[in-house]
């Protein structure tokens, strides 16, 4: 398992990283935590001439508040995200989903932004970020731009990021007081999700005032389960209402068949797991 030869640079600012990427064109790969890229390089499924390691850029790390938004730096490790009091308070769904990522070693190395920019349909973080209407802050040669999560995930392993752009932070509205659950279904602990369901609910006076639901691995990109969200509004988050809402889970999905599951099984799981995610969130 020896990668093909490549140049390695570790810029210390975002601007320097962007300049480097801009010069390199398509020949560069961005290294964040390396938990997906390094296996790809070692198996020679990619052979970039240049690897730009942005993991050491200070301004891309950490969690902070900015008015009504919670801001998670792209190079914040999974471990820091799931332990962050701010994330737990204002975006519990993100903390819960992050806790299911791989194992402690990976969570210490892997980064929030790296995982989102990798855009693996089986990855656990895109669905919560999509469901929570996050904004992705991207820096390129012409400066900063903001991409809504709904436009960020384009296809399998493909995002709205250009080759000369870097994801620097993710801005989330605060979901303070919302209940949440991430229901992950996989076969062994270190395996990717066959299907995952991210759900967060605002319950007022015993009924669902707002709901956000996202699905992992039910298509080329994470899927927002708007039908489920709509069906829940105004209902008590329990029993029959949840069952009826979950029946909408597969609307708009395009589940694929692969080594771990065929499409019809995925669709079945999506419905079952949506029901469970909602019930657990409501109970929490």
């Amino acid at each position: 398992m020896i990668p093909a030869e490549f140049e390695y640079v570790a810029p210390s600012t975002v601007e320097e990283a962007v300049r480097t990427l801009d010069r390199a064109g398509d020949d560069a790969k961005v290294l964040a935590g390396g938990q997906s890229l390094l296996p790809v390089l070692r198996m020679r499924m990619a052979d970039p001439g240049l690897v730009v390691d942005i993991g050491g850029i200070p301004e891309t790390k950490g969690v902070r508040e900015d008015g009504d938004a919670l801001v998670i730096g792209a190079m914040t490790s999974h471990h820091e995200v799931m332990r962050s009091d701010l994330v737990r308070q204002h975006a519990e769904l993100v903390a819960l989903a992050t806790r299911t990522v791989a194992d402690p070693q990976v969570r210490h190395r892997g980064t929030f932004g790296g995982s989102l920019a990798h855009a693996d349909p089986a990855g656990d973080l895109p669905a919560p970020v999509l469901a929570m209407d996050a904004e992705m802050v991207v820096v390129g040669p012409s400066g900063r731009r903001t991409v809504p999560a709904a436009e960020f995930f384009v296809d399998y392993f493909t995002t709205a990021l250009q080759a000369n752009e870097v994801l620097v932070e993710v801005r989330l509205p605060k979901y303070t007081g919302w209940r949440a659950h991430y229901e992950k279904f996989n076969r062994v602990a270190q395996a990717w999700s066959i299907v995952g369901v991210a759900a967060t609910l605002l319950v007022r006076d015993g009924t669902v005032a707002q709901a956000r639901v996202g699905l992992t691995n039910m298509g080329a990109t994470p899927v927002r389960a708007r039908g489920v969200e709509q069906a829940l509004l105004g209902s008590p988050p329990s029993g029959e209402a949840i069952r009826q809402a979950a029946a909408h889970a597969t609307e708009g999905t395009q589940a694929g068949s692969d080594a771990s599951a065929e499409a019809d099984y995925r669709e079945h799981l999506a419905e079952v797991l949506t029901g469970r995610a909602l019930a657990t969130a409501a109970g929490g």
Partner: peptide
């Protein structure tokens, strides 16, 4: 359908 999958990468 037994495998786990390297994410969704064809491995």
């Amino acid at each position: 359908e037994s495998g786990g999958g390297l994410g969704s990468i064809d491995s």
